[in-house]
């Protein structure tokens, strides 16, 4: 199948509020910046936030794509249903979710699978998913090259759901090496130590993303990925490393892209983070 040429990254979690959308956006932006043709698909069909977080308005959505595909499979071109996000010379495609909740309800899993497989022109397809084992999500996990499985260690019920979710993925026979455990809101002095979480899961984190709520808030407010809205943030740097891991390239930490940072922004908040970081911050290492 044509679509199999693309690398599909499923950004998944089993507890809400673990940073799937922010991660999906910043992965897509980072991959695009690295020169890869990238498409970001918002699979939170009812309440997707990708368009909102990127301050985009689109005319066509997945619902239109599905209708067109069902009408005439032969002449269907996915390009006609994608929105384009561009900022600072970086651009990637976005497939927006249906506008109406009723349309979201009518989305057909096979149609979505077919649409994704028609995206062979892209090097990377990033899927922003919901925190549930639905038929759609399972089909997407099946299609994905890697599962960027996110969790957070700062709230015990979330840790429980991370463990339950991970065990379920393994029970569903997803290969261990396909599942990349990504901790979000990683803090060294958290009540719950990430090593304990690793022990609980029986696996190591693939990557750990630090907390920077201010940077995320700013990014959403500006409608721009972190590299443009908070280039100095350790979170932004951490996303670069994650992009580096998925592309098998070592990406040097980026310098500030001054022209993208509004003058009035408080830069000290970004720097204070660097000072707080521990020496053995695992998420800071790029392997390979």
């Amino acid at each position: 199948m044509e679509g199999r040429r693309s690398i599909v990254i499923a950004v998944f979690s089993t507890s809400a509020g673990s940073g799937k959308t922010v991660t999906a956006i910043n992965l897509a932006a980072g991959l695009a910046k690295e020169g890869y043709q990238t498409c970001l698909v918002d699979l939170d069909l009812q309440f997707g936030d990708v368009m909102g977080y990127l301050d985009m308005v689109g005319d066509v959505t997945l619902a239109d794509a599905q209708a067109a595909l069902m009408r005439d499979e032969a002449s269907f071109r996915i390009e006609d249903y994608l929105a384009e996000y561009s900022c600072g010379g970086v651009s990637f495609s976005v497939l927006p979710p249906p506008k109406e909740i009723n349309d979201a309800y009518l989305v057909d899993v096979d149609a979505v699978a077919e649409i994704i497989s028609r995206m062979g022109g892209f090097n990377f397809i990033v899927l922003d998913m919901t925190a549930v084992f639905s038929t759609l999500n399972l089909a997407m996990l099946d299609m994905s090259t890697v599962i960027n499985f996110m969790g957070r260690s700062d709230f015990l019920p979330s840790v429980k759901n991370y463990k339950v979710g991970y065990d379920t993925l393994l029970r569903f026979e997803y290969e261990e090496r396909k599942i990349c455990l990504v901790e979000n809101r990683a803090e060294e002095n958290d009540l719950i130590n990430y090593r304990d979480v690793e022990r609980l899961l029986g696996a190591k984190f693939y990557h750990r993303l630090p907390v920077d709520s201010q940077a995320v808030t700013r990014s959403i407010r500006m409608g721009r990925p972190l590299m443009f809205s908070a280039p100095l943030s350790p979170l932004t740097q951490s996303y670069w490393q994650l992009v580096g891991r998925y592309t098998n390239r070592s990406i040097a930490p980026r310098q500030v892209q001054e022209q993208e940072v509004p003058a009035e922004e408080e830069k000290h908040s970004g720097f204070s983070w660097f000072f707080k970081r521990g020496k053995n911050h695992a998420e800071g290492q790029v392997k390979g």
Binding site: G17, G52, Y53, I220
Partner: peptide, 12 residues
Amino acid sequence: NSGQEVRHMKRS
């Protein structure tokens, strides 16, 4: 949280 929530509630 992110500011999108009011819109989601409206749709709900």
